[in-house]
Design a protein around this nucleic acid. Structure first.
Lengths: 233, 233
DNA sequence: TAGACATGTCATAAAATTGTCACAAAAATT
DNA sequence: AATTTTTGTGACAATTTTATGACATGTCTA
């Protein structure tokens, strides 16, 4: 599930530091040091995310962002702006062109990674083609197959999609409506409570494997998928 | 989560109209009618946004804005200017001191709310999503989860909201009525003493972790959430 | 076309949450 | 010390929210 990240930054030391950190964290990187190089690298296969320096020689980062966001094919690529100063104006302008987030230099590697993951999670929740693994639970979107501790689990189509969604969106509460939107699809007219029933079916299916309570009910809010279960005393 | 908005406006009727509209829309309000009052109210917990009248007795709104924007601690608070005339110069001057937006009087409630939301969205796009931490106590609004020293704590919906409010409004006494307004919602008919019961439940839930007395009773006034334990009187 | 699955919706059971009380405890006043 | 005011607590019944089993309908396959 390696994501490819395009790093657009003119100062070599910073760029290298960033790519180092990214690769340490399991991302693939492509580098570009100015507007033109960047433009040239935003081609198929499109990067999964772009880290874009605010100030670039030969055309500002904002200009590039704007251009990418106006193109039909590239506009869905998430962009994170790197800005040297916490200048409010910069932020505003960045957001105006549809940038997804920004990180102010200097930033910690931890923060950078966290932001990137957050954006990816937010932007391309289901795009993964590769198998997902979570606490001994494996889901292969391509083979359309689920196993827990190497034991096969049979799921109906809806339960499969539901589990898929959950496995790509852990540690977060989703309301029944959100689940309907994400798993059933928007503009589908189905009762909220139907979610309960499918949750029940999914729970039942993965029960007996000790993974039953991975799906947690958050009263008044919805459901959450998570490995952690025990509540403190 | 309820945002707190400081309304700085000298004409009482207008001010009251504004606060009414804001509260109708789920915001909490603080009022100030002149420069000094406003200054005095921009203290922790800082308001999430300031609505500032252009003309103020005893020092113009611009002066206040400038002063706030030059202070390290307050400069990140977004400010929306209320101006009586659509004077381009005013706007420019306002923006020069870093004001985030302006609304020209007379304005419709709808417009006001829209502007406020836009500014909040622009300035802190992820603020609602970020986990809050306070003395080893963590509250994650997204996962809908609370932990103390990495140990999970189970809370009912109301207790969760109550704790959330407290963690975003520490070091300050809130009356039972204010808590009802903020946590239960305005125009909800519930006994004052109900707050006591929920305080009790929350205390119980976070007890045993040494965080029990983070919620302090201020006799005759209400409750306060604070890390500091009272020493003298 | 029969049979095996899947799905959405109900009705009902089961749980958890909530607001109030009544009384105890603590603090402030007389 | 007695009284009054304010807050802490445990219990409880009503209400709200979830869990669950059953079922009718629709789909697909053999």
């Amino acid at each position: 599930m390696n994501r490819q990240i395009l790093v657009v930054e003119d100062e070599a030391p910073i760029r290298e530091m960033i790519t180092f950190v990214l690769e340490q964290n399991g991302f693939n990187t492509i580098e570009a040091e100015d507007f033109d190089q960047a433009k040239a690298k935003v081609v198929e296969p499109y990067p999964d995310l772009i880290l874009l320096d605010w100030m670039l020689p030969g055309g500002s980062g904002v200009k590039l962002a704007k251009s990418l966001k106006q193109n039909e094919y590239t506009r869905s690529i998430p962009i994170i702006m790197l800005t040297a100063r916490a200048d409010e104006d910069d932020k505003v302008k960045g957001f105006d062109v549809g940038v997804d987030d920004y990180v102010t230099k200097p930033f910690s590697p931890k923060e950078l990674i966290a932001r990137i993951k957050a954006v990816i999670r937010r932007v391309s929740p289901t795009a993964l083609e590769e198998a997902i693994e979570f606490h001994g639970m494996k889901l292969d979107p391509v083979a359309h197959r689920v196993s827990i501790n190497d034991r096969n689990v049979d799921l109906g189509p809806t339960e499969f999609r539901l589990l898929h969604f959950f496995m790509t969106h852990t540690e977060r509460v989703y309301s029944r409506e959100q689940l309907l939107d994400n798993v059933w699809g928007t503009n589908v007219y189905v009762e909220d409570r139907t979610v309960d029933v499918h949750i029940r079916r999914l729970r039942k299916a993965i029960a007996g494997e000790g993974h039953e309570d991975f799906i947690q009910t958050v009263r008044g809010s919805g459901y959450r998928f998570s490995g952690k279960v025990k509540a403190g005393v």
